[in-house]
Nucleic acid binder design. Structure first.
Length: 256
DNA sequence: ATGGCCATAGTGTATGGA
C-alpha cells in the first residue's frame, strides 16, 4: 500500500491539483494539512468521485487536516485528547488495521514568541498522547504523517548557517522531534538512500523552488510494525512545478 | 538592496505562513 502526506495550503485553491495528483498517484491513504476550510465547505463529493472516503477537521482561514482513504476510516478522533485546542491540527483514523494520524504541527513564528512556546507545548502533549496510542496500536502499527514544521538535521536545510537557531531548525524543536522518534517512530525518508538537498517545502519568494532553497519539514513517521513493511519513501516535486502550486510537495511511502 | 510570495478576510491592508 502507498501512503502520503501533503500540505496543500488551502484545499479550496488546490482542489484541482489534488485531484490531478491522485489520478497520477492513486495512493491508498493521503493525509492533508492546511485545508483552511470549515467542515461545511469541505469538497466531499469531489473526493468521493475520485474514489476516496474522507474524514476532515477544519476551521476558518487557518489550519485544518483531513485523511483520504480508499478503505473505510473508523475510530475517527479530532485533536489530541490531552491538549484541548481550538486550532484544528490533528485527525486520527484506523484504516485496514493501521492507525493513521494527520498532523499539522504549529509553525512557531519565531524563537521566543508565544507561538513558539505553543509549538513546544503542543509537541510535548503530542508525545504524551502518542506514547499511549502506540501501545494501543502496537500490533497493527501507527503512522503519523504531516507537516512537522521542523527540519530534523542540517542536511534537511538549504542553508544551515543562515537557518541556525531559527524557528523550524532550533535545538528545542529538533529535540522535540527526536523525543517522538524515541517513542519508536522512524522517519520513513531516512530509511533509504536519498539525494542530497532533498526538501519538501520551498519559499514562494526569491525563486525559492527554482533555486532549490528549501527545507525538509514534511515527514512520515512509522512505528516498528510499519517500519518493517516500508520499502520506499520519496518526495514528489512534480506538483510544485504546476501553476499556482502549494509551497509544499507531497511525501509518499510504500508499505508491503 | 534585509525584501521580494501567497492565501484569507473582505474591499484597505493586516495577519500568518516557513
Amino acid at each position: 500500500m502507498k501512503i502520503a502526506t501533503w500540505n496543500v495550503n488551502s484545499l479550496k485553491v488546490r482542489l484541482a491539483h489534488l485531484l490531478q495528483w491522485l489520478e497520477a498517484n492513486p495512493v491508498d491513504v493521503l493525509c492533508l494539512q492546511e485545508t483552511k476550510l470549515t467542515d461545511d465547505k469541505f469538497p466531499v463529493s469531489e473526493i468521493n468521485s475520485a474514489g476516496y472516503q474522507v474524514a476532515f477537521s477544519g476551521q476558518k482561514t487557518y489550519n485544518g487536516v483531513a485523511i483520504l482513504s480508499k478503505l473505510p476510516l473508523t475510530d475517527i478522533v479530532r485533536n489530541n485528547p490531552l491538549f484541548p485546542d481550538e486550532q484544528q491540527r490533528i485527525l486520527a483514523a484506523t484504516i485496514g488495521g493501521v492507525r493513521f494520524i494527520s498532523a499539522y504541527v504549529p509553525n512557531g513564528q519565531a524563537v521566543g514568541t508565544d507561538k513558539y512556546a505553543y509549538k513546544l507545548a503542543w509537541l510535548s502533549a503530542l508525545r504524551e498522547w502518542l506514547a499511549a496510542e502506540m501501545r494501543v496500536h502496537a500490533e497493527g502499527g501507527l503512522a503519523i504523517l504531516g507537516d512537522y514544521n521542523i527540519a530534523p538535521e542540517d542536511r534537511d536545510v538549504h542553508d544551515p548557517v543562515a537557518w541556525a537557531g531559527q524557528v523550524l531548525c532550533s535545538d528545542l524543536e529538533r529535540a522535540a522531534l527526536t523525543a517522538l522518534a524515541d517513542l519508536g517512530l522512524s522517519d520513513a525518508f531516512r530509511l533509504f538512500e536519498q539525494a542530497d538537498k532533498s526538501f519538501s517545502w520551498w519559499d514562494y519568494r526569491q525563486l525559492g523552488y527554482q533555486k532549490n532553497k528549501g527545507l525538509r519539514i514534511d515527514h512520515i513517521l512509522l512505528s516498528d510494525a510499519l517500519k518493517k513493511r516500508c520499502t520506499a519513501c520519496a518526495i514528489d516535486r512534480i506538483p510544485r512545478k504546476w501553476e499556482q502550486p502549494s509551497d509544499h510537495a507531497p511525501v509518499i511511502a510504500t508499505l508491503d
